[in-house]
Design a protein around this nucleic acid. Structure first.
Lengths: 210, 210
DNA sequence: TGCCAAAGTGAGTGATTCTAACATATGTAA
DNA sequence: TTACATATGTTAGAATCACTCACTTTGGCA
């Protein structure tokens, strides 16, 4: 019982008492949410996978929603990092950079549909979570900056903000429809990259590349 | 105990044994989902509100997810009816009719954010629910027909399908971002009707009215 | 070394989902 | 009208879960 190397997908059980249980719990919950759906997760099962008693999680999280919020917070960090990496992989100010932000968004939703749904389906305790709110705004900020650079306008410009919001709406909706498998008729036939380029160009008012 | 007129918001208790429990349960669950969030609902509470024992619901629904699916099914009927009514309130083939479909969509999300989230957040038993799948496709069909009429092309045309999908993505994303209160900075300032007209026009390739 | 706080355990409470066995009302056919 | 089959309800109970409390163990620190 000193070691348990086959503990789900968590890298390893560090120690009997001291291990970084908090991170391991978040990883376990993320996995559960991904496989069993956002509401098919239980604190008891997560604790079981982490190899601790069912009361241990409450030393690190106040509540069941608090655990969910931890997962969401971590996921939003990764999402924003992916968006920024997408923007950085193309010349600053190019429309390709804008589309790459959207592409990163859709890719994240495809790779982790359960977590993605959780991020934008969290309602309980949402009002009392200023850090999640601010992280959401930072994600939006990535879109705003890319659009601003592309348009040659300051990010505070209202037109930039509006166009960034439209871009985000489209990409957000496309992500949801994709993972929901609704209307796969059109979704499957679509090359996302071309679509994102097309729509980004149209929304930003730039000529569309063919 | 023959009458119980103050039973939540359900119109009235029809009879002791015979009442239309199924419809009343769906109404109670819809209400619970709306007030306490999609996962803050319990079969026991719904039964309590309908004035029956906690085992009664299982005579009408196989499962907890089955009840949710019943609510979703009913909601999708209403959503489609609202979209069709929106389209019908403007001349057939007009861009205003297309935008009205989107407006109905956003209005529904605003009016019933909990149910809306449930409709597109349902994952459990989703694969074994062909009626929900077909209802989703019928909703998409409303968009397709409006776009086809506007473009003067048959609904089966692939360009029509793709543009309809883009329209739906945008409207869907806008709905979600609106009810999630993310990035209210831009969302609040927006006149939806003008936006929908603008985007609809851009996506359909028609001149944008100013 | 001795003490304190952090971190984990085990048992227990109340609520939940769902099943099983039983009771009652409704509709149909003799 | 009576008798049966079925739909619809009930109570009781098993299994699970969220969460709390009292207790124990461990690591850090003066």
């Amino acid at each position: 019982m000193t070691e348990d190397p086959a503990a789900s997908t968590a890298p390893a059980r560090a120690a009997y008492h001291h291990g970084d249980l908090r991170a391991q719990l978040i990883a376990a919950v993320r996995e559960l949410v991904e496989t069993h759906g956002p509401d098919g997760f239980s604190v008891a099962e997560a604790a079981r996978r982490a190899g601790v008693s069912s009361a241990a999680p409450y030393k690190h999280f106040k509540d069941r929603p608090a655990i969910l919020r931890g997962v969401v917070s971590e996921a939003m960090d990764r999402l924003r990092a992916a968006m920024e990496a997408g923007a950085a992989s193309y010349p600053a100010g190019s429309i390709e950079a804008v589309a790459a932000v959207g592409r990163a968004y859709v890719s994240f939703a495809r790779a982790e549909p359960g977590v993605f749904r959780l991020v934008f389906g969290l309602t309980e305790g949402h009002e009392t979570a200023p850090d999640l709110q601010s992280k959401g705004e930072r994600c939006f900020g990535v879109v705003v900056r890319a659009a601003a650079a592309c348009l040659g306008l300051p990010p505070e410009n209202s037109d930039v903000q509006a166009r960034a919001y439209m871009l985000w709406s489209f990409v957000h909706g496309h992500s949801f429809l994709t993972i929901d498998k609704k209307s796969n008729v059109a979704s499957d036939r679509i090359d996302d990259w071309f679509y994102l380029l097309t729509v980004s160009g149209a929304i930003l008012g730039l000529p569309i590349r063919r």
